[in-house]
């Protein structure tokens, strides 16, 4: 287990502050944050590249805060820092101490990552995706306890991004090594992570399982970051034994909440668009809406901008459904808000 305790590091723009964070063995842990949130610095502190002003890093019960980088069993995996004067094979073999087993081990990890055909090449001749694979192979070759990944999928084309993402997931599952990954891409985070910590200005805003973060974002920043597109200002009141949100539109809530001012978050995929003629839903949280715009989001999904008596909402739906329903600018539809998340203002 890797523990970060009472960490403080003053940077130019912000101070990194983490009171306590435990990362379990074999976990895929993602630090999610905008650029400049201190993610890379945090990773470098874990790697030992930089010293914290204060606090401890503990790996398996041992304080490694002041340990030299090479004695930590924590590897920084970075495609941009392949050694340019060495071939792919020599890069992967760089950290293997037992020279007799070197060749064999290099072959093994190269095979695992599907880069055997690149072994004789120089890093500069590789594509970015290939460079990342080589960097990952180089890290795996020495069987570290923890692998650190600094935006490994950044600036890759869509297809390579997707392939490498799947690869990371597969490699993580098959090796059981702890992966700590930093990114600004929340889709990447939720596809890979067991747990996520959302960083803002050097502090952890929320840390939890993917499901937890998606379903219960602790504040507006986290909510926005994890794709909650609709944030309505209003208050929670009691009505006939129900908790009801009032603010532009009225939404009946499931569960118990504090009364008073609140921001209501609604995920775009939680707004169901019902064709007006076919209304079988009970009328709870069903509204008439006018379509302001429809545009493709991915190959298979569309985003629909809606107006519910002056309140603007963003919904997402399957493209084929939108086509079937004939959704277009000016259409009148019924929508049902399936789920909503009351968020306290920070």
């Amino acid at each position: 287990m890797l523990t970060i305790e009472n960490l403080r590091k003053k940077l130019e723009q912000l101070t990194l502050e983490i009171d306590r964070l435990d990362i379990e063995d074999g976990e895929y842990f993602v630090f999610l944050g905008l650029s400049g949130a201190g993610k890379t610095t945090l990773l470098e502190i874990i790697a030992g590249f930089r010293k914290p002003d204060f606090g401890r890093i503990i790996l398996d019960g041992m304080d490694i805060t002041d340990k030299p980088i090479n004695e930590r069993k924590i590897v920084m995996c970075h495609g941009r820092y392949l050694f340019p004067h060495l071939s792919v094979e020599e890069n992967i073999g760089y950290g293997i101490k037992d020279k007799r087993k070197q060749k064999e081990r290099v072959k093994e990890v190269a095979k695992m990552l599907g880069i055997e055909h690149l072994l004789k090449r120089k890093p500069e001749t590789l594509s970015m995706g290939e460079q990342q694979r080589v960097a990952l192979a180089r890290a795996l070759a020495i069987e570290p306890k923890v692998i650190l990944l600094d935006e490994p999928l950044n600036s890759l084309d869509r297809l390579t991004h997707e392939n490498l993402l799947l690869e990371l997931k597969r490699i993580h599952e098959s090796t059981g090594t702890t992966f700590i990954h930093v990114t600004h891409d929340f889709i990447e985070a939720i596809s890979l992570a067991n747990r996520i910590a959302v960083l803002k200005d050097g502090k952890i805003e929320q840390c939890g399982s993917v499901e937890d973060i998606l379903r219960n974002p602790r504040n507006v920043f986290v909510a926005k970051f994890v794709g909650v597109k609709n944030l309505l200002m209003g208050k929670i009141v009691e009505e006939n034994g129900y908790y009801v949100f009032e603010g532009g539109i009225r939404i009946i809530l499931n569960g118990n909440y504090e009364f008073g001012n609140v921001v209501l978050g609604i995920r775009p995929e939680d707004i169901l668009i019902i064709s007006s003629s076919n209304c079988r839903f009970r009328d709870e949280n069903v509204f008439v809406a006018r379509v302001l715009d429809v545009y493709p989001l991915t190959l298979s999904t569309v985003r629909v901008l809606l107006d519910v008596s002056g309140t603007k909402l963003v919904a997402e739906t399957i493209k084929s459904k939108a086509v079937r329903m004939g959704l277009r600018r000016g259409s009148e539809v019924q929508i049902c808000v399936m789920s909503a998340i009351p968020i306290r203002q920070a």
Partner: peptide, 18 residues
């Protein structure tokens, strides 16, 4: 970039070796 050296150290090299 000094990160080359740091990465080499994280792969197990001492400072001098890196």
């Amino acid at each position: 970039d000094s990160k080359y050296e740091l990465v080499a150290q994280s792969l197990g090299s001492s400072r001098f070796e890196s």
